[in-house]
Design a protein around this nucleic acid. Sequence first.
DNA 1: GAGACTTATTTCATATCATAAAATCGAGGC
DNA 2: GCCTCGATTTTATGATATGAAATAAGTCTC
Lengths: 419, 419
Amino acid sequence: MVARRATVRDMRRSNRAVLLSKIYLDGPLSRHELTQLTSLSPASVSTLVAEFIEEGLVEEAGSVESDGGRPRVLLRVAPSFGHVIGVDVGETRVTVELFDMSMAALAKADYPIEPNQLEPKVTVAHILEGITAVCAQAGVDQSTVLGVGVAFPGVVDSGEEGLVHAQHLGWADGVPIGTMLRAGTQIPVHIDNGAKTLGQAEMWFGAGRGTQHAVIALVGSGVGAAVVADGASYRGSRSSAGEWGHTTLVYGGRRCRCGALGCLEAYVGAEGILDRYRDANGRSAPGIDEESAIGALIAAADSSPTASEVLNQTVGYLGAGIATLINLFNPERIVLGGWAGTALGGRWLPEIRAAAAKHALKLPFAQTTITLCELGPDAVALGAATLPVARLLADGGLRPAAAAQAALVRGPRVRIPPR
Amino acid sequence: MVARRATVRDMRRSNRAVLLSKIYLDGPLSRHELTQLTSLSPASVSTLVAEFIEEGLVEEAGSVESDGGRPRVLLRVAPSFGHVIGVDVGETRVTVELFDMSMAALAKADYPIEPNQLEPKVTVAHILEGITAVCAQAGVDQSTVLGVGVAFPGVVDSGEEGLVHAQHLGWADGVPIGTMLRAGTQIPVHIDNGAKTLGQAEMWFGAGRGTQHAVIALVGSGVGAAVVADGASYRGSRSSAGEWGHTTLVYGGRRCRCGALGCLEAYVGAEGILDRYRDANGRSAPGIDEESAIGALIAAADSSPTASEVLNQTVGYLGAGIATLINLFNPERIVLGGWAGTALGGRWLPEIRAAAAKHALKLPFAQTTITLCELGPDAVALGAATLPVARLLADGGLRPAAAAQAALVRGPRVRIPPR
DNA sequence: GAGACTTATTTCATATCATAAAATCGAGGC
DNA sequence: GCCTCGATTTTATGATATGAAATAAGTCTC
């Protein structure tokens, strides 16, 4: 951790962040409870909460009688304090969703991407149009939108430009999506990888709640993971950590679409499963798209020995892949998600656990629980929308702009010279 | 990250920590330079440094002329402020080493472990005896020892008890080494895994210097890794993160000594290499122990096609294993170490890099440099000795005991009641 | 060799902040 | 109406970093 110098102001911001995060994530809570949970003094809690209420960030939400004494007043982050937008850029469509602070969905817009229109410009236009559209649809002024989170299927390099490398969109070279979006809207933009935003959603509202160390393992057409360490997303030096799908599982094995041999994705990704089935069976599983084909395969597991065999193998590979995560990250919890992961886990979770046990070290395995995700793949946009909220919480509710403005209004302090 | 409430005192401790760490890790530095590097005000630097000097933590170390102005006075952490001890518990011996604050070695003691005397009690006795011995040898009073860091070959569960699970020592069940050691000495005890302490040494004094995200990949008889994220050791929920050796590399492959099939260690660990050579060659590589056998094998690479073949395969496996680290952790740097890793890397580093490139995703691979370690396996004890130093720096030089005592001396503040 | 100049460090007055202690509030019980 | 109890707010205080001004410690110029 890079420690930074601290001033009294940083202290206040930090305490505001602690308090606000507690109210948001574990609220509604009374001042008294907040005192205990944050170990701040009652005086500080009182002062800070008064500030929050003054700013419209927090509001009172009923009270709880306490036998004999003054009742506790419950506090929550005001759902109407502002709005956030989450965008899920998929391989076939762009989904834009508007939420209030409580993450209640207010409006939604969908833009199919034509396979021949994969240019970044088109995607950016869809996103910008979607922002306008959802705000109009819900009758919300854009100035109340705290931020837009955008999730992409690919590696998102953190940094000013917001470089996105998305092979499946044909963006091999790194598209400066951040710069492009900021040119089209005033709203603060946050960009991240879709697996990471889905992981964030599961951490806040799904199967990851209450843990500080978790890995959200996602299996769909692609295979990826979102790693959470000490309660925060693990990003590595350039934000591309967690590329689980392309770890080598079978040295020298099947060719993966990334070009390498033996990647996990080539075995447990939807395409990998279907390819292996076709190889074993002589012809493809029925189904218009991958999703229905996998569904058909799973449905056939009882009747078709080949399907059963292929899926059993898949479970074994998946377990070994999960074991790698357990050995390397030592999480409290593995959350298995993604549409294919959910489908497999729904039926074979005990077998997946057993396969992981076979390949992981005993001690870290015993410290890990393996569960299914709770939110489903649609939560990518929800997770993206949490990005500006997370920013707000980390800043203690002091929006950077507001903070800068406050400093400006206060102005350079003029000192009266001594006589 | 778990944010905690902050008080003005926390602020001071934090600023002391920032300042002291800079002086220790990048020193000697002048107050002026510290002002720029920490972004603290000159006033604060001056005050804090005065405190450090008063406490004997920091001392002046010459000055640098500056053309025209007042010369800068250089500051460094006083080497004689205190001492630290590092202990390396290996499979065959216990090494205890005494250092001053500048990590200059002052004394050393060695205790061979007889194969039939693997009981924890014996090891603990060696450590305690070693502490006394090195202090006596160097004429150092034990009260000046800030702490003892002890490195074990196995999983070390953080927490009060200091549970150590070391299969190679026959300690399968978790031995409460922390409790046992604390019963025998007053000196604060820190316990960690040997790979992690070696990694720490490389980060501070070796090939990891200057990076915030690195993985120290260690290949010897066993295979492990020390992961550093954001400048701090990545531990996971229960400190056993980084068990690289038992990630599955060849699904269904060779049996590993951990019991699973296809672990990385079964292919690139010393035993794995020698076994594969024996399988290919029909008989074992010459050598009394693993280390000389591996040395002989590498020496024979030019003349023996079989040796060459086996080592080439090893390079391929190792590259794939490194690629897994790159994909999952997205480090700035991979440092290859361990005695076997150093030997292999010394000769085939370009080939290892190429093999990693073949198995890693292009983007994270391009962001990573792969280098050899600089310190050698003896640095385990050095790394262990950095644990108490790291503690001191993180606490801003306020030893917990001293801090508590200060609070005690100050006593409960008595308030004079108003008239 | 004296004064000008330059750069580093220290001193001082000030504003910010969390906190302990005391006061106040809001309800039920008698 | 008065008392009790627990929650919250008010008040006085001490700790802290900081900008600005002052001071220190050299070199350079003439």
